[in-house]
Simulated assay, not measured.
Amino acid sequence: MRAYILRARVLVAAFVVVLISGCSLFSPLETEMRVAVIDQLPPEGPRREPRAATLLVLPPSINPVYDTTRIAYRTRPHQVDYFSLHEWGATPAQMLLPLLAQTLENTHSFDTVVSPPYFGPYRYALRTEILELTQDFTSDPATLHLSLRVQLIDGGSNRVIASRGIYLHEPMLEKNPYAGVVAANGATALALQQIAGFVIEHVK
């Protein structure tokens, strides 16, 4: 009888262990959306003697593939996918505009740095296009790709004074969406620093 009771207790204990394990194995997967932002400014940027000029920073245009709050990634060449549980708090173009304006204002090179809506006169305008913003998992380490095209425009004639492409490849510390967000912030800060130098170099 004692042996029977002992075996019964062992079976009950084993059943409880399996039940607990089953609860953990079959518990619902996490479905909460993670919202990320690009908000990193350069720690420091170029400066030049201020000039009596207004700089208009136009809203960036963007490749339609990335004109979304969905975060793009790549696991094979020639194909872009989007994370299902990670997204941007705004589109990349919407996040970049205030960062551009703040970075250029921090150079103290202009009387005023403005962005739309603005209907007054301006001497220069900055056009920016986001060509790519992708977390690339086909490389080792995984890499954040950020590509931009910038143009400095004469406000009087609407003539292109200068243009430049910026192509950055920021290594990701881990192969996960958050590491890509961190890398995107680092790459953006470096791009902003380069854009500020480009503008200062070509204004008179």
Rank of each mutant, 00 (worst) to 15 (best):
H108W: 07
V181L: 07
D81W: 04
M33Y: 06
L148R: 07
R159L: 12
L99T: 00
A187K: 01
E49T: 12
H169V: 09
D111E: 12
P121N: 13
L133N: 05
A53E: 13
E87H: 03
V65Y: 04
P177C: 13
D67T: 01
H169L: 13
V181P: 13
T69V: 15
P92C: 06
G165W: 11
K204S: 15
G197Q: 15
Y122D: 06
S163V: 02
S147T: 14
F119M: 07
R70Q: 09
A8V: 07
L11H: 03
V37Y: 13
V37D: 11
D154R: 13
E170H: 01
I20P: 00
P60T: 01
Q193W: 08
H86M: 03
M33R: 15
V80F: 06
T128E: 03
E87C: 00
Y118M: 09
N185T: 05
L100H: 00
S21F: 11
A3H: 12
R70V: 05
Y124D: 12
L58P: 01
E129F: 07
T31L: 07
I153L: 13
E201M: 06
T91I: 00
A189F: 04
V160S: 10
N176A: 07
V150C: 07
A183P: 09
D140C: 06
M172A: 09
D67G: 00
A142L: 14
L131K: 10
I38K: 04
P177I: 04
T134E: 08
D39F: 01
R2K: 11
A3R: 12
F26E: 14
R48W: 00
P50C: 11
R48I: 10
D111S: 13
P59W: 02
